[in-house]
Design a binder for these strands. Structure first.
Lengths: 168, 168
DNA sequence: GCGCAACTGAGACTCAGTCTCAATTAAGCG
DNA sequence: CGCTTAATTGAGACTGAGTCTCAGTTGCGC
């Protein structure tokens, strides 16, 4: 049960600083998040917790995600779809995404030269960056091989495990 | 009335190629879009057309925007909010965005070195890019000057003219 | 001009995310 | 260890962007 205790301790500290409380729901959510090693959606989280018989409400999931983002333990990322995805932050930290528009595969990468160049651009524009978000959409190697796209997808599909809606 | 006729001609060609029709609604929408020289939202478009006494439905606006994106005349951009923004494409073409998280100002920029480096990264990952989207969030010069952020905004606010909801 | 596939609008629907409010709980304090 | 109270929770109503349906309309190739 002491898995992910480092993350929980960090979150606890953050909450205390803000005069907020570490509740069982919040703790369970952090555990769940840190056991997912991929991008996830809020509803996916809710679903998984239901599966594990952990009781938590939609509202609490969203509220806690917001706190986790503020605390820096979780990052909100755009993956080309029209709603948010999240990922937990653990040591290694920042990266950007290559997203295959055919199969939905997400490839992470980090490139120091790219980062440096961005900083230069900001400096020149007198802009103080705090965060950035880069997605490159296109075809992954596998999809390119299996024929020049069969039917021109105009929208990214099937990212993550899909929505699995189960409102209540 | 022949303003923006180049764009309309291009769209007409695209439609014809696809066996689709150029209707009065679609033409009016293209006119409206090409008279906005900034990022806009779908609802904003609907609102402006109502103001100008052009009758068009929400469904048609969305349907036409999709076609315009496919035709390459309009681009869908993420501006850090939870819904889409659009911008028309006109000659000069591709650029990325610096977005001030305090006042919502959007600064456009284009940097060839950044583009080149991205192409290199894709090559190394055997990824065939078709499009990318880079937003750098932070503080613009003006906001940085007027004090180190008064109350830590955790979310981008007030981008564009705001939503001005008027469903019907 | 005709025919018919493409198109349109009204409004129902979906789905992610937010808000409200009464009931509950963490945690500092005596 | 119980009290107090501010923070938190869950149920479900609500919001707002975007999609879908379907009956009626229209562009356009013949």
């Amino acid at each position: 049960m002491s898995k992910h205790s480092a993350a929980i301790a960090r979150f606890s500290d953050f909450l205390q600083q803000q005069g907020l409380k570490l509740t069982t729901e919040r703790e369970a959510l952090v555990r769940e998040i840190f056991s997912i090693h991929y991008h996830f959606e809020a509803d996916e989280l809710l679903f998984k917790m239901k599966q594990n018989n952990v009781k938590i409400s939609r509202a609490t999931v969203y509220r806690t995600l917001e706190l986790l983002v503020k605390s820096g333990l979780v990052r909100r990322v755009h993956l080309g779809e029209d709603h948010y995805h999240y990922e937990h932050v653990s040591g290694n930290s920042h990266h950007d995404h290559l997203i295959c528009t055919t199969c939905g595969t997400v490839i992470e990468f980090h490139d120091e030269e790219l980062e440096r160049r961005q900083r230069e651009i900001c400096e020149r524009k007198k802009f103080t960056p705090t965060f950035h978000n880069l997605q490159i959409l296109g075809l992954c190697d596998a999809c390119r091989r299996k024929g020049e796209q069969p039917d021109a997808p105009d929208r990214v599909k099937m990212i993550g495990q899909g929505a699995m809606n189960l409102r209540k």
